[in-house]
Design a protein around this nucleic acid. Structure first.
Lengths: 190, 190
DNA sequence: CCATAAAAGTGATATACATCACAAAATCTA
DNA sequence: TAGATTTTGTGATGTATATCACTTTTATGG
């Protein structure tokens, strides 16, 4: 377990420097949790108590449309952060699902805890500032992909960007992430 | 001009509190700029020296695809921040355009300045953290719209969310934002 | 290791939306 | 305010992708 906290500290220290004293203040806010494949972190209409840092495993966050089709917002793997951020930030019931594609381990952080350590420790505010900004940039790139590329081009792009992901998740989930039907994706070469 | 700085300070103070002393440190980093309709803030392949806070006016940020079609990433109006954030953050040549739909005024902030005030003044780090997080959430919502809704449903959603925008920009730009052809959008009722 | 479920492939058909072509409004600008 | 430019509307046609139905292949858990 201590090594998991070590991993988390390393994750922060890739972006900002922390003293031991600061880390002592931060670490207790993170609660360990472990789930098996198919178990839910977040379900629609339920409160969203935490954001999650993924120690190990793989999750997906997704919405279900009127027709019952699944649309994937994000795949989360080791070292990623995931939540229903809209609901988390505004403390509203979830509008998306997050569940495990593989057995997974997490650190959970409540909104209250996050705001508290951001107020107390400027380095943490800067960490989240930089992380959020990077996340924002990634989503802008994805929107441009959705607007400018064909389904097949988006698939090729993903193959280049995250080749390992394709080994870990069924293609029908890749299709749900790219915004294309699994049948159409299955007809792409490669 | 002083009142423009006042507006900017108010904008920060909607999210965080600043002392006069802090504001004295912050304000000089912002450089005033004024452009007319059709003039460019950012052009592809050029360095991106600043991010821009819009005092007044309206801009669009967009990419041009291989076929020469324009795809709009963002409309920026009063109080919005805009840049080519990917290029800005990584100090690379721009991959998108930003130009004025109306005569506009801005405050420009360099990356160096932004990082400097975020390091010196924790409230500013928290301001950008919260702003980036909100931006991230908004883009997630837009991705879900692109994945789950039809073109007409996305149009209706935008009509609800930003009814004033429709008064200020030609419909062909709305089409370029929604990811639909202007002809198809013209056939939607309303 | 077997039984059941999940994933993937594939043909036939349907459809949302794009594209092309042209005309009519609306709006800039000299 | 006249001429040019931009924007909008609309019919005809094309196409990328969805949907449906079914089979084959691969994974999974008891």
């Amino acid at each position: 377990m201590q090594e998991n906290y070590g991993l988390l500290r390393q994750h922060f220290e890739e972006i900002v420097n922390l003293t031991d004293a600061e880390w002592e203040q931060i670490a207790p806010h993170f609660e360990y949790r472990k789930l098996k494949k198919h178990q839910f972190l977040i379900q629609t209409d339920q409160p969203v108590e935490c954001e999650f840092w993924i120690i190990s495993g793989l999750v997906k966050s997704y919405a279900i449309d009127q027709k019952g089709n699944e649309h994937i917002l994000q795949f989360g793997m080791e070292q990623y952060w995931v939540s229903d951020y809209f609901a988390f930030q505004h403390q509203l019931p979830a509008t998306i699902f997050v569940d495990c594609i593989e057995d997974s381990e997490f650190f959970c952080l409540s909104l209250e805890s996050r705001e508290s350590i951001c107020q107390q420790i400027p380095a943490i505010a800067n960490f989240y500032r930089i992380k959020s900004n990077n996340g924002f940039i990634n989503l802008q790139q994805r929107i441009l992909s959705l607007l400018t590329l064909s389904a097949e081009e988006r698939y090729d792009e993903l193959l280049n960007k995250l080749p390992k992901l394709l080994q870990r998740v069924p293609k029908k989930l890749i299709a749900a992430y790219l915004g294309v039907s699994r049948e159409t994706l299955s007809r792409f070469k490669n």
